[in-house]
Amino acid sequence: MAIQQSQKPLELILARNLLTSVSTPAFLLDAESAVVFYNEAAGALLGRPFEDSGRMSAAQWTGAFGPFDGDGTPVEVDSLAVTDAIRAGRPAHGTFEIRAADGERTAVEASAFPIVASPNGASGAMVLFWPLDRNEPTR
């Protein structure tokens, strides 16, 4: 009775259901740091709904949307404090810029926390974004 292991862990399913219901832009990452879902509010921020993007690996995500530092220089995902924290099973908070599909960059403040349901570690992470006022300095 081999079962195809395609289904997401329940905690990710429930996280997606929650994000679908909120108006704060939010992303859902899986254990490989791929973006497996973002909600309508995030789609509006990026100018592209998730239905058009589908699952994106970290490299695909970075190439399409950033992040960038305050000078517009691309930031490697692996160098973000948020990435380190999530991989270590801790929450994180940071500020950077992302680029929408039309090329417009938006400064955002982001909070991320790991989703942990088993002793084997995080099965993913939830990342919520708050667009910053353009005059507000990035931190």
Partner: peptide
């Protein structure tokens, strides 16, 4: 709960597998 069952991809449906 919070999920449109009819159109959702199977991998996101609780209990599908």
């Amino acid at each position: 709960l919070g999920a449109p069952l009819a159109g959702l991809e199977p991998e996101w449906i609780s209990g599908f597998d």
